[in-house]
Amino acid sequence: MKTATAQINIPFDLLAEAVTTLNIEHKIKLWKLLGQEITETQRVTRNNIDTSAIDSLDRVVEKVLLETGMTEDELVEAFVNQES
């Protein structure tokens, strides 16, 4: 069975005050849940950044190939020779 969820806006100071009233078991549970959420958010953010950077690079490479008429191998070779 799925757990029902709701999204509400609570001022941070009220939330912080409410957390102080929790018993130790609930504070530990909250700490673990927040840790999981932070970890997931960081993972998703990294993946989104990585994906958008790769997508952007792919578009630039495609544009260069189309405008120059070069093959991918020729483009790689041009970059390698430029570094030498």
Score class of each variant (00 low, 15 high):
residue 8 I to R: 13
residue 28 I to K: 12
residue 84 S to E: 13
residue 5 T to E: 09
residue 19 V to I: 15
residue 1 M to F: 06
residue 37 E to F: 06
residue 11 P to Y: 00
residue 80 V to T: 09
residue 5 T to W: 10
residue 22 L to F: 15
residue 12 F to D: 11
residue 32 K to P: 00
residue 74 E to I: 06
residue 82 Q to K: 13
residue 19 V to M: 13
residue 70 M to D: 06
residue 37 E to M: 09
residue 72 E to W: 03
residue 29 K to T: 11
residue 60 V to G: 00
residue 1 M to E: 07
residue 4 A to H: 06
residue 36 Q to V: 05
residue 15 L to K: 04
residue 32 K to D: 11
residue 65 L to S: 05
residue 36 Q to N: 09
residue 69 G to P: 07
residue 11 P to V: 08
residue 43 R to G: 00
residue 38 I to L: 15
residue 1 M to T: 12
residue 13 D to I: 04
residue 83 E to T: 10
residue 21 T to Y: 02
residue 43 R to P: 00
residue 27 K to N: 02
residue 17 E to C: 03
residue 73 D to E: 15
residue 12 F to V: 12
residue 21 T to G: 10
residue 22 L to N: 03
residue 21 T to K: 12
residue 53 A to C: 06
residue 68 T to S: 15
residue 27 K to W: 02
residue 53 A to Q: 11
residue 48 N to R: 12
residue 48 N to Q: 11
residue 78 A to E: 08
residue 14 L to V: 01
residue 79 F to A: 06
residue 59 R to G: 02
residue 56 S to K: 07
residue 15 L to R: 04
residue 22 L to R: 04
residue 40 E to A: 15
residue 54 I to F: 03
residue 31 W to F: 15
residue 16 A to W: 01
residue 21 T to M: 02
residue 57 L to D: 02
residue 50 D to I: 01
residue 25 E to I: 10
residue 3 T to S: 07
residue 35 G to N: 12
residue 10 I to Y: 04
residue 14 L to N: 12
residue 62 E to T: 11
residue 24 I to G: 00
residue 57 L to V: 08
residue 48 N to A: 08
residue 46 R to W: 00
residue 53 A to F: 04
residue 33 L to M: 14
residue 67 E to S: 04
residue 71 T to K: 08
residue 8 I to H: 08
residue 21 T to W: 01
residue 32 K to M: 10
residue 39 T to W: 05
residue 59 R to D: 10
residue 36 Q to C: 03
residue 36 Q to E: 14
residue 32 K to R: 14
residue 79 F to S: 04
residue 6 A to G: 07
residue 40 E to D: 14
residue 65 L to E: 01
residue 7 Q to W: 01
residue 39 T to D: 13
residue 43 R to D: 07
residue 40 E to W: 01
residue 4 A to M: 07
residue 49 I to M: 06
residue 55 D to M: 04
residue 46 R to C: 00
residue 23 N to G: 08
residue 24 I to V: 12
residue 33 L to R: 09
residue 7 Q to D: 09
residue 77 E to R: 14
residue 77 E to D: 15
residue 58 D to F: 06
residue 27 K to G: 03
residue 57 L to E: 06
residue 63 K to G: 02
residue 46 R to Q: 08
residue 17 E to R: 13
